[in-house]
Amino acid sequence: MLVALTQTALAPVAIVGDAIPLPLDGRTGDAARGRSIATDTRKGLCPLCHTGLGGAGPAGDLGPDLSEVGARLSEGQLRLRLVDGRVLNPATLMPSYYRTGGIRVAGAWRDRPVLEAGEIEDVIAYLVTLKGASRTP
């Protein structure tokens, strides 16, 4: 008996320095969709560790405040951190949102990334808008 295992095909990534300069799926993300993902404690999970996202719920303090992340990091730098921040810091607590094969994931997440390529791009589109006092909530 043959059993086919289904795995989400991940777009190939090219790391250049401290960034992945090109969008994962070849398109620019949508900031409104990205905000929805980034502020959702069930989808993007960002508020569990980060403040400064503009969401309505409580936020954690394990990770840095993201209210000015768009002024500090480029799209490519954000992309690498979301795809697999362990490339930059093997001891990071930041989850790898675009990777499969993790050994410490629930069964529902095995062989698929936490966020799809388009969702990663949407989150990046939102994060680059976060530039501190100049942004609107």
Rank of each mutant, 00 (worst) to 15 (best):
Leu2Thr: 13
Leu2Val: 13
Val3Pro: 01
Leu5Gly: 13
Leu10Glu: 06
Leu10Gly: 08
Ala11Pro: 03
Pro12Asn: 13
Pro12Ile: 09
Pro12Asp: 15
Pro12Gln: 15
Val13His: 03
Val13Asp: 12
Val13Glu: 10
Ala14Met: 12
Ala14Ile: 13
Val16Met: 03
Gly17Tyr: 00
Asp18Phe: 06
Ile20Leu: 05
Ile20Phe: 01
Pro23Thr: 09
Pro23Leu: 09
Pro23Trp: 03
Leu24Pro: 00
Leu24Ala: 13
Asp25Met: 10
Asp25Arg: 09
Gly26Lys: 06
Gly26His: 07
Arg27Gly: 14
Arg27Glu: 15
Thr28His: 06
Asp30Tyr: 07
Asp30Ser: 09
Asp30Trp: 03
Asp30Met: 01
Ala31Asp: 04
Ala32Trp: 03
Arg33Cys: 11
Gly34Leu: 05
Arg35Asn: 09
Arg35Asp: 06
Ser36His: 10
Ala38Val: 07
Asp40Val: 08
Asp40Glu: 14
Asp40Pro: 03
Thr41Arg: 07
Arg42Leu: 13
Arg42Ala: 15
Lys43Arg: 11
Leu45His: 08
Pro47Glu: 12
Leu48Trp: 12
His50Gly: 04
Thr51His: 13
Thr51Leu: 11
Gly52Ile: 04
Gly52Cys: 09
Leu53Glu: 09
Gly54Ser: 12
Gly54Met: 09
Gly54Asp: 13
Ala56Arg: 15
Pro58Tyr: 11
Ala59Thr: 11
Ala59Lys: 04
Ala59Glu: 14
Ala59Pro: 02
Ala59Met: 10
Gly60Phe: 11
Gly60Tyr: 14
Gly60His: 13
Gly60Glu: 14
Gly60Arg: 08
Leu62Lys: 09
Pro64Leu: 04
Pro64Phe: 04
Pro64Cys: 02
Asp65Pro: 00
Glu68Ile: 05
Glu68Asn: 10
Glu68Thr: 12
Val69Cys: 06
Val69Tyr: 02
Ala71Ser: 15
Ala71Ile: 06
Arg72Asn: 13
Arg72Val: 05
Leu73Val: 05
Ser74Ala: 14
Glu75Val: 02
Glu75His: 02
Gln77Arg: 12
Gln77Cys: 12
Gln77Asn: 14
Leu78Trp: 06
Arg79Ile: 10
Leu80Asp: 00
Leu80Tyr: 01
Arg81His: 03
Leu82Gln: 01
Val83His: 00
Asp84Phe: 00
Asp84Thr: 02
Gly85Cys: 05
Gly85Trp: 02
Val87Gln: 06
Leu88Met: 12
Ala91Val: 04
Ala91Arg: 06
Thr92Gln: 00
Leu93Ala: 15
Leu93Thr: 07
Leu93Met: 11
Ser96Trp: 00
Tyr97Ser: 08
Thr100His: 07
Thr100Trp: 01
Thr100Ile: 14
Ile103Trp: 06
Arg104His: 08
Ala106Gln: 08
Ala106Tyr: 06
Gly107Pro: 00
Trp109Cys: 01
Arg110Asn: 07
Arg110Thr: 10
Arg110Ala: 15
Leu115Ala: 05
Glu116Asn: 10
Glu116Val: 08
Ala117His: 10
Gly118Thr: 09
Glu119Thr: 11
Glu119Phe: 02
Ile120Pro: 00
Ile120Glu: 00
Ile120Met: 01
Glu121Leu: 07
Glu121Ala: 09
Asp122His: 04
Asp122Ser: 10
Ile124Gly: 03
Ala125Tyr: 02
Tyr126Lys: 01
Val128Ile: 14
Val128Trp: 06
Thr129Met: 03
Lys131Arg: 12
Gly132Glu: 07
Ala133Cys: 06
Ala133Leu: 10
Ser134His: 08
Pro137Phe: 11
